[in-house]
Design a protein around this nucleic acid. Structure first.
Lengths: 342, 342
DNA sequence: ATGAAAGCGCTAACAG
DNA sequence: CTGTTAGCGCTTTCAT
């Protein structure tokens, strides 16, 4: 059923039917009711392709997902973000278009989005330091929101980010309060913006107490499980091993934990592990192991807010906005009730 | 830059330019070269909306992601599937459209896809027993491929599935070979088709040895971590606790493992855990703990094959096809090199 | 308050 | 080989 058929059925012009359905004021309430009823009855819905062509609005938002062999971008974090954003899109009648491309095809993917006219805006994921994409998108002229930040960007851009600095500062402070003095930071690749911020937070908390970070205890790499395992093994073999690990990713923390187990050490007694990106209490243990979570719900919230910001930019032609969200943390004893620190 | 402008620039008709770009044979190689060069130079790409409207092909595939408060459909498995499918789409010039909807909005989402004309086909996720969606989609008349099966479906439909029965049969056999006799099956909700198949595989392996499943050791629920933890705690508190757990989900297995730790038991000595949906050796331990993985790469492969099948159906008007993939398993000692059993 | 007609950018008969 | 002419289904002036 299309507009023409519907209008013939009603003995009205396409124009009137269109206006009635789209809430234009100049149509009489009587006909509007009649039209709406008929549309409902016949299951009519406007063809989005045609509407897009006529209006110039694509009614969809693009996400580019780079997926390489080494770098596992398609991770749980991303899934949560998508869930948050997706709901916002649905509610506003937008579609979400995913473009999964290999590393090198990323720029082409953004350009394609523009040229093909298939999206009204774009969400940029996992910004790096000096990320070329923000310049690219400004040049392309498609509204976009970055999930995260590129600290050294030369031009203004819209972003939504979780306060990584603060989150890691608090986590470190928490470990210090427990008496830990040798804390290892198992960080993500420091080409990623968030990793740098996390390190800053870590260092800031130490500095606060007059301590300085032991470089030997700081590592940074692609956040795989093997990386966590090997790093922890190496650190625990030192004459002065760390008594606590602050780990940037859930997956990596699993590796750290495996290493600890392999050495016959007891989590929470011999060594503590705190991780980010984790709501599922993956690391809850017996004893006094502490847990720390910057929750998946935070990521989902970020997705929602990013989507809202982008739609706002598109609808109101507003300039770049910025939004810093505080991570929802949980710090405390795992055996007892956990304390929400917000 | 659009077709008209480009054609005027070249002093050719839109038709010729279109034909040249789309590889129609009736255009001379000379003009084709000229056109392609110009298109390249001016960064011309056809507007997909217009093309879709003209051809009737949307050049995109829809995925409906139901996301409820209780049921965490947006899981790692899904992310891997998307990665596999997405690459296939990209390579064929298709877009992937995600529709994130709340539980009850699922049917409406499928109908909307059809009516809005925004997709050429649909991938159906997480089929349940007696899933109403396969009938719905047949009625709607949009090509679709189901990832998984709905065993009791009354009508033919296309599907791609991993051989869950066989996978769990092998895993169970493996545990039996190790001498285990009291094996717990911590299964997913048995409204889900795959969960039923897994149980069948489990039971078949037991039957093979003249054993029958102890109903007290079989559980089935939403695959959360808490479910795994609570179930394991309860089972291990029995006078005759299981010596091994076969767990349907990575997340749930984390809970099982936590329970084991809480009781001061040693993984691999006192009790073994084997899980599905896991490639990251989450459960690799010291000692002789066994590990079993139906890998994430299998899921990704399923995504790829589903996409290929769907595109084939769309292009060649072929009827429903069926494809059963064997899961890539890894069974063995975790300390030594793991043996790939394929 | 309603309708006629033009046009969004492209493809696809149908001519030559 | 190339061009002319209709649409695809919808929105949007411009009339009435």
């Amino acid at each position: 059923m299309n507009l023409k058929q519907l209008s013939e059925l009603l003995h009205l012009s396409q124009t009137t039917v269109s206006r009635a359905l789209n809430g234009y004021p100049e149509v009489s309430e009587a006909t509007r009711k009649r039209v709406q009823a008929a549309a409902q009855a016949h299951g009519y819905a406007p063809n989005m392709r045609a509407r897009s062509l006529a209006t110039g609005r694509a009614m969809s938002i693009g996400h580019v997902i780079p997926v390489s062999s080494k770098h596992e971008m398609v991770n749980p974090v991303f899934a949560d973000f998508i869930a948050g954003a997706g709901e916002t899109y649905s509610r506003n009648g937008y579609d979400m278009v995913l473009s999964v491309v290999s590393d090198d095809g990323e720029e082409a993917a953004y350009r394609a989005f523009k040229m093909k006219g298939s999206v009204d805006g774009i969400i940029v994921h996992a910004p790096r330091l000096g990320d070329p994409r923000i310049h690219l998108l400004n040049e392309i002229g498609l509204p976009f929101v970055v999930h995260g930040r590129a600290s050294d960007a030369q031009e203004p851009y819209a972003w939504v980010d979780v306060n990584n600095t603060h989150a890691f500062e608090r986590a470190t402070r928490f470990l210090l309060d427990l008496g830990h003095r040798r804390i290892a930071l198992v960080n993500g690749l420091e080409t990623m913006d968030f990793a740098i911020r996390r390190r800053h937070g870590f260092e800031a908390a130490l500095a606060e107490r007059g301590l300085s970070a032991d470089l030997a205890l700081i590592s940074s790499d692609e956040m795989t499980e093997a990386y966590g395992h090997d790093t922890a093994r190496a650190l625990l073999a030192r004459p002065d091993p760390p008594t606590a690990f602050l780990v940037s990713s859930m997956i990596t923390a699993i590796g750290v934990r495996r290493a600890i187990e392999e050495l016959g050490l007891v989590m929470g007694r011999d060594v503590s592990v705190i991780t980010h990106d984790d709501e599922l209490s993956y690391f809850r243990n017996g004893g006094d192991t502490r847990l720390y979570t910057a929750t998946r719900s935070s990521v989902r919230e970020a997705g929602k807010r990013s989507a809202e910001m982008l739609l706002d930019m598109i609808h109101n032609q507003t300039g770049p906005q910025e939004l810093l969200l505080e991570a929802e943390l949980t710090l405390g004893q795992s055996t007892g009730p956990t304390s929400k620190e917000t």
